[in-house]
Design a protein around this nucleic acid. Structure first.
Length: 453
RNA sequence: GUGAUUGUAGCUCAGUUGGUUAGAGCGCUGGUUUGUGGUUCCAGAGGUCGCCGGUUCGAAACCGGUCUUUCACCCCA
């Protein structure tokens, strides 16, 4: 072991204990998805680069992991581009595949490709890893799992409502306190319109998204830097500073956005969604937050973000409605809305707050101590019956020292140990030891099953 | 991509202004105990001090580079 092996930066190994925790999270999320009628799909880890490029903005293209072509990939590359060290253009010649950056774009590709097999509205969930060549930091990894639920082929706002119900259910089940922030891209468009800067919508949203981080003055500075005149910035102030309850915010917006058709449409949508969720008994607080402006270029309606209340970490769930995502792959007029649960951040939150229920980590329930070949064979027979009764049980494979075998049971937190030696074999019974209390009893297999269950 | 930060045994960490054979706790292995663990006692193994280069009589320590860790910016789950 001269050189220690390692894994790429921003990636992690997961031990059996860690996997038990992660599976608890995945299983919880999955069961909620299923409950609402979503069905699983999977897509390949790699996609054609043409599918991925240009979907996440310029920054996104840089953060894509690209896969070198097989074989002598440099042979076909343009020599002058190589000589110029033109990375961007050379990349397209030596790489035509990349690792997926999220699950939404591959899903859009999937829908377009399989449009004739799909019955709309199509409700799918997808739990798979994604990769980003980002620089790792708190709550940020280069490989992480997303748990996406999307419904495509339906414009109904009941889908938005359903997604919020799902968020409510998932975090209730995981016992994480969260706040749902909601906004609507149409409102943001309306705002840009009324201040006469419709083309600067992206700059404006990016700037006001930073409000709680850098403060009002810095936001205004940034807006000015992006070329907004003082008049426009002044007009923005009541919107940036909008306060009060959701209902109050909506009333203000209705007057401010009175001259913007799109803006009013956005307000109407959000008002409806908020009213509906009140009616269906969602417990999680949902807040209208105009500073929420997910960077992704493809959202057109609702925008969601979920923050953990008891821990400082980026958003743990995000999503929204995209009216034309499949359009870029040639299928027009299919609206979709979806959200993505960030499993790795949820995992970090669960760990820090220690929110795992005690019985969520299931291991072996019963270990048979191995005293030798005859005893092991006898144990194996008993084990068959015990396993059929649905009890996780194992036999220590070697006739090792008691101490080693008992230690093994301890380390694996196995609750019961079965001892089978000459005496037990003679009587056709098994000695069962409770590892917590130390109590021992001589039992038949049937009695043992009842005691261990 | 920009700016900081970290790296010593399996793990958590000591290691003086550069000076002999680099330490501790926990863990691990063996024994104390030939059918009883988590709580005794004893012994042992394990490190080219992240890697490469430089300064020096001498480097874990100083300098440069590189990788890695953590954090902020950008962006995002």
């Amino acid at each position: 072991m001269a050189q220690k092996p390692s894994i790429p930066k921003g990636t992690r190994d997961f031990s059996p204990v860690e996997m038990a925790k992660r599976n608890y999270i995945f299983d919880t999320i999955k069961s909620v998805f299923l409950k609402y009628g979503y069905q699983p799909i999977e897509t390949p880890a790699m996609e054609n680069l043409s599918t991925l490029m240009g979907k996440y903005g310029e920054e996104g293209d840089k953060l894509l992991f690209k896969i070198l072509n097989s074989g002598d990939y440099l042979a076909k590359a343009d020599e002058s581009l190589l000589a110029q060290k033109n990375s961007v253009k050379t990349t397209t010649q030596i790489s035509e595949k990349g690792l997926r950056y999220d699950l939404t774009v591959p899903f859009a590709r999937f829908v377009v490709q399989h449009q004739n097999e799909i019955t709309f509205p199509f409700k799918r969930y997808q739990i798979q890893p994604v990769w980003r060549a980002d620089r790792p930091q708190k709550g940020r990894y280069r490989e992480f799992f997303q748990c996406d639920v999307d419904v495509v082929g339906s414009n109904s706002l009941f889908n938005e409502v359903e997604l919020i119900q799902i968020v409510d259910d998932v975090y209730k089940a995981l016992n994480i306190n969260v706040l749902v922030k909601m906004n609507n891209r149409k409102i943001l468009t309306g705002i840009a319109e009324i201040i006469g800067e419709a083309d600067k919508i992206i700059d404006i949203t990016v700037a006001i998204d930073k409000l709680d981080k850098i403060g009002l003055d810095k936001v205004n500075e940034e807006l000015a830097a992006k070329g907004l005149n003082t008049e426009a910035i002044d007009k923005l102030q009541p919107i940036i500073n909008l306060g009060g309850t959701n209902a109050e915010k909506i009333e203000t917006l209705k007057t401010v956005l009175a001259s913007s058709e799109v803006g009013l449409k956005g307000v109407e949508e959000i008002e409806k969604v908020l009213n509906y969720i009140e009616g269906v008994g969602v417990k999680t607080e949902v807040e209208l937050d105009l500073t929420l402006a997910r960077g992704l270029n493809y959202y057109t309606g609702a925008i969601f973000e979920v923050k953990a209340l008891d821990m400082e970490i980026g958003s743990i769930t995000g999503g929204g409605r995209y009216d034309d995502l499949t359009g870029i792959f040639g299928l027009k007029d299919v609206s979709g809305v979806g959200i993505s649960f960030g499993a790795d951040r949820i995992y970090d939150v669960m760990n820090q707050l220690d929110l795992y229920p005690k019985d969520s980590i299931v291991s072996t329930r019963l270990l048979f101590i191995n005293f030798g070949e005859q005893e092991a064979l006898y144990s194996l027979n008993a084990l068959q019956e015990i396993r059929e009764a649905g009890i996780n049980a194992e036999l220590f494979p070697d006739a090792a020292k008691m101490k080693k075998q008992m230690n093994y049971a301890n380390k694996k937190e196995i609750a019961f140990v079965a001892l089978v030696g000459e005496n037990e074999m003679k009587e056709g019974k098994i000695t069962l030891k409770n590892m917590n209390s130390g109590e021992q009893n001589l039992l038949t297999v049937k009695e043992l099953i009842e005691a261990v269950r």
